[in-house]
Design a protein around this nucleic acid. Structure first.
Lengths: 186, 186
DNA sequence: TGAAATGTGTTGAGTTCTCAACAGTTGGAT
DNA sequence: ATCCAACTGTTGAGAACTCAACACATTTCA
């Protein structure tokens, strides 16, 4: 992609996040963004139709960035290293994700993340579905809610324990559901 | 001026300064700069003919920035506030000016600064020249050398005393030459 | 030595961004 | 109520930047 596109989008998103933290979504104007980012106002409209669209794209971008940080650990699924790198990434970008998970994200961020995690969980457990008396939907809902819940708790309470601890605790809680998966999948 | 020009020049100069600090002038390539600044190589040539020209422009820019920080104190000339703001600015941008005053600047920076200060000094003392037995040239040379000398000492020795102290000391040393100027000019 | 790799400086076509101007909307002060 | 100021969203012309390609010089190292 043209470098100019990368740079202006990056610049717009960064200042958008900053302004979101400073004054909240409804008080932000396109003028604000353009001025602060030192970009022509028209250029913003070249990339986003309005500030709602900008929020959408912003959430989408940061969802992707978050997911990239567990996908690059070669064995993708339920492994300590994957969880660890996700929480490390969250720690590093704490202020942004706290913002997106807060009311400023209007729940869109949470919903989007939930959907993706749920899909992943579904994919994993469906492989091992035959000998299971439980509904897969219920299991997915349960596990995903649990995981997202822990993630939200950790962010909203400003990381009350370190990465090592959340990761271990989470693995311990998931163990009953992952151990027989391990034996069959791997 | 077009925002794009500002931004790319800023970006090029910043990475040039960084690279100057890292590897020194002769090891820098235009490729380095373009790559690090995330700018097309051709674009560098749109603004600078080669890296020597870039060094020149860089020096010129930082000379101007330095001078701006004493010009905006309304009473321009020999006033405590003027000295103070210059040294404060130097303190804030210490690493850059240390670099430019070092061998990396090839003496160009010093010479350029010297010329400008000397001109200012000449202008000031020429007003008060009639009753003076001394050659104005000698006086200019003496005062300018003294001032630049202190400035270089302060930067090269990594600011061995605080801004307040250099400023006061300098004012004290200049007092014999400024006090009768005061009575006539102001 | 001679070949491969890296850097220089330039070109032209194509894309993105800027700027200034426009008409229309909104919110707050008088 | 209405005026003013600020914001929105759009347009067209022109400037800046990107990209790929080029010929040529310099360095590296086998």
């Amino acid at each position: 992609m043209d470098r100019r596109i990368q740079k202006t989008r990056q610049s717009i998103m960064n200042t958008f996040i900053d302004l979101l933290a400073e004054k909240g979504f409804e008080k932000i104007t396109i003028n604000d963004i353009a001025e602060r980012a030192n970009i022509n106002r028209g250029t913003v409209y070249l990339h986003y139709v309005d500030k709602f669209d900008l929020l959408d794209k912003c959430i989408e971008t940061y969802i992707e960035l978050l997911l990239n940080h567990c996908a690059n650990s070669t064995d993708t699924k339920l492994k300590a290293s994957a969880f660890q790198s996700v929480f490390e990434y969250l720690e590093k970008n704490f202020t942004i994700y706290k913002l997106l998970l807060s009311n400023e994200g209007f729940g869109f961020f949470r919903n989007r993340l939930f959907a993706i995690i749920a899909q992943t969980v579904t994919d994993v457990i469906s492989i091992k579905s035959e000998n299971n008396a439980l509904s897969n939907d219920v299991t997915t809902q349960f596990l995903t809610s649990g995981f997202i819940g822990v993630l939200e708790w950790w962010i909203n309470n400003s990381m009350p324990c370190n990465v090592q601890e959340v990761t271990e605790q989470l693995l311990f809680l998931l163990e009953p559901y992952t151990k027989h998966l391990k034996t069959t999948i791997i």
